[in-house]
Simulated assay, not measured.
Amino acid sequence: MAREITTLQEMLDRIGDSADDAGRVSLGKIVESVGNRSFGPLLLMVGIIAASPLSGMPGVPTATGVLILLIAGQLFFRRDHFWLPKWLLRRSLAQDKVTKAIRWLRPLARFIDRWLRPRLPALIRGGSIYLISFICGSIAIVMPMMELVPFSAHGAGVALSAFGLALISRDGLLALIAFAVTAVSFGLVIYQFS
């Protein structure tokens, strides 16, 4: 059984090594490589998509919301491992594209890893996991509305990425920051629709 991922650089290494014999990297292989019990890396990956310029494209926040809901729901019910539909697990990219993305992300991962460390453990253990999964599920439900509010999906993506990083590194302070970013993102949506 593979050791649990504790840094972003470890996650990138595993993703980089997950190509099949045909030179393709499928979502299924990525999930397998980061560990199907590792909800943090999966939440981080979806959060990065939501925080990226891709979330400005119509439909992307809604699709991302569905994936977040799957992750958050399974985290909330404390499933032993993460499940995704087979058709989604078969989706793949060419290895050279994945390698290029990893090369681009590696300096950022090194920088972020320097700041993360286990602290405030009560915020990422026990009952706090239920709160984190509930907040992430709430973000997922609001994501379709965020398509109508400029930059709110980016804020939600930052919050999701922070929750994922907090779970990976056992950093409760980062979870606290993620709660604050979520509150600001929700505030923007509420203000826009009031």
Rank of each mutant, 00 (worst) to 15 (best):
M1Y: 07
M1A: 13
R3L: 06
R3Y: 01
E4I: 13
I5L: 15
I5N: 12
T6P: 09
T6V: 14
T7N: 11
T7V: 07
T7G: 02
Q9T: 13
Q9S: 15
M11T: 01
I15K: 15
A19V: 02
A19W: 03
D20Q: 04
D21C: 13
A22E: 15
G23S: 10
V25N: 04
S26W: 03
G28Y: 04
K29D: 14
I30L: 14
I30A: 05
E32M: 09
V34Y: 13
V34I: 15
G35Q: 01
N36P: 07
G40H: 10
G40K: 12
L43W: 13
L43E: 05
L44M: 15
V46F: 12
V46I: 14
V46T: 14
P53E: 13
L54F: 15
L54N: 15
S55V: 06
G56C: 04
G56D: 10
G65L: 14
G65Q: 12
V66Q: 00
L67N: 08
L69W: 03
I71H: 00
G73V: 00
Q74F: 04
L75Y: 13
L75P: 00
L75G: 00
F76N: 03
R78S: 11
R78T: 06
R79W: 01
R79C: 08
H81W: 07
H81M: 06
K86A: 13
W87E: 14
W87M: 09
L88R: 02
L89G: 01
R90I: 03
R90G: 01
A94N: 09
A94H: 12
D96C: 01
L105F: 15
L105E: 03
L108T: 14
A109W: 06
R110F: 08
F111L: 10
I112R: 05
R117W: 05
R117N: 08
P118S: 03
P118H: 02
P121E: 03
S128E: 10
S128F: 12
I129C: 02
I132R: 07
F134A: 15
C136T: 08
S138T: 06
I141P: 06
I141E: 05
V142P: 11
M145Y: 04
E147M: 04
E147S: 12
V149W: 05
V149Y: 11
P150H: 05
F151E: 04
F151D: 08
S152K: 00
A153T: 06
G155S: 03
A156W: 05
G157P: 07
L160V: 15
A162F: 11
A162D: 02
F163W: 04
F163Q: 09
L165V: 04
A166V: 05
A166D: 00
A166H: 03
S169E: 04
S169D: 07
R170E: 10
G172I: 11
I177S: 11
V181G: 00
T182I: 08
A183C: 04
V184L: 14
F186P: 05
F186M: 14
G187N: 07
V189M: 13
I190Y: 01
Q192S: 13
F193C: 03
